[in-house]
Amino acid sequence: MVDVAQSNKPNSPLVPVLGLSFFAVASGFLMSLIPLSLSANDLPSALAPWLASVFYFGLLTGAFFIQRVVAKTGHRIAFIVFLLLLTLTVALQVMLPQVTSWIIARFLAGIAVAGVFVVVESWLLMTDTAKARAKRLGLYMTSLYGGTAVGQLAIKPLGTEGALPYLFVIGLLLLAVLVPLLIKGGQPDNHHSQPLKLSELKSLSRPALMGCLVSGLVLGPVYGLMPLYIAHTDYAPNTGLLMAIIILGGMLVQPLVSFLSPRCSKRLLMAGFCVIGGLSVSGIAWAGELSVIMGCYLLLGACSFALYPIAITLACDNLPGSKIVSATEIMLLSYSVGSVIGPLLAAYVSVATNGLPVYLAVCLIATSLYMLLNSNRRMPANDTQVADI
């Protein structure tokens, strides 16, 4: 085992961020690879929304017990276990390209990814100040979305046929596993981690829960259905590029989110991003030039991926460190509910022309109205300790 100087510091961000970077490239590529490789594996294209939903159902299932796994094993070992589980699911898809096996694999992958998210988020959020939490979460989101954007660019050189693209994903996930294996220090003190009591759940910010829910309602279809939507438009040759631009928008907005989140109303911040996101979706549906389309996809990514970090920092404001793992688990649960429902709802309306953009616009505009109504009440600067609608 190798110790890195920084990893010896209590709760160092080195291991989660470095491991997450490899994970993000792999999952970003896999996100678009799965729906685009269905025909090459003799699987029906109608399976795509079901694979997306069962993945997020796995995410939802995992959110119920991950806190106990982390509390028992510690962050580092849990990180290794969940990454290895995800690697095994990808191998299962390569070995058994069948409907049933892929559905099972994506369900287990959802559980594994839920574990990765809760481990990394709680690892980074277990610090003393709201400003430090926002900064670390911005670093987390930048690594996640930056890696995911890079992963999208692998579609063109590696293609979507055969085992090679999936073996590339497996290789990246094994590199992610090596990080916590080789760097054994720097994890937070976990023996004080405590679950939230039922009475404490009622005090969690409802706008925070709503922000995570809508993030799932939007990002589930973006991940699972947007590649197919683009592939059926005039911009089909640019599917990988446009998906990468969406993720790039999510990465580029994170420093702005980190700066604004501790300094202004998080409710108003989410409302503003939702309004801009709704307008960008209109551009996607009706703009006629590639440069305009690219700009709209960039804005959609920025606004869609801004919701979750703002909501989760709102939820964790004023929480003691011992409750952070449990709080991130609950926020992930809310996100997962939206992610399970989102692809199915979007698939239902997508039979119409521009059905997916219309669905996304409705979700974002409705959320902005909710946040604006909620922000009308007088609030302290940190957006907590106020009665929510």
Rank of each mutant, 00 (worst) to 15 (best):
A132Y: 00
T129P: 10
G162M: 04
M270T: 03
R378N: 00
I284F: 06
T239M: 04
V90K: 03
L204W: 09
A134V: 01
F168E: 01
K135E: 12
A24R: 06
N41R: 11
L268W: 10
S45Y: 01
L201D: 06
V2S: 15
S205L: 13
R378M: 00
L242W: 10
A346Q: 08
L369V: 14
W123S: 01
I276N: 01
G74P: 08
I365G: 07
N318Y: 11
L314E: 15
A231K: 12
V4M: 14
C363L: 11
S199W: 09
T142R: 03
A176K: 07
L219G: 08
C264T: 15
F64Y: 14
K135Y: 09
V362Y: 05
G159H: 00
T367M: 15
V15N: 04
A130T: 01
G58T: 00
A105E: 02
L307D: 06
M331D: 04
G19A: 15
N190G: 13
A91D: 04
V325F: 08
T61E: 03
L360A: 14
L228Q: 06
P35K: 00
T148Y: 13
N376K: 14
V337Y: 12
L204M: 13
T353V: 13
S265N: 13
A306Q: 03
M126K: 10
N11M: 00
L38A: 05
V362H: 06
P255Y: 08
L43I: 01
S265Y: 03
C274W: 00
I183S: 08
F57H: 06
R267E: 12
S322W: 02
L36T: 01
Y140E: 03
P380K: 01
V177L: 11
A163Y: 03
I330N: 05
L88M: 15
L364V: 09
L319T: 02
L298P: 02
A52R: 02
V70Y: 04
S122V: 09
V257M: 11
L319V: 01
L164G: 11
G220H: 09
V94I: 14
V99N: 00
D189K: 07
Y145E: 10
K197A: 13
H192N: 14
T328K: 01
M294P: 02
A163M: 05
P16V: 02
I77E: 08
I34Y: 03
L144M: 12
P227Q: 05
G58A: 04
L84A: 15
I77H: 06
N11E: 01
P320N: 09
F65M: 09
D317T: 15
F82W: 09
V179N: 07
L158Y: 08
R263Q: 10
P309D: 08
G355S: 11
Y359I: 07
I170Q: 11
Q187P: 09
V281F: 07
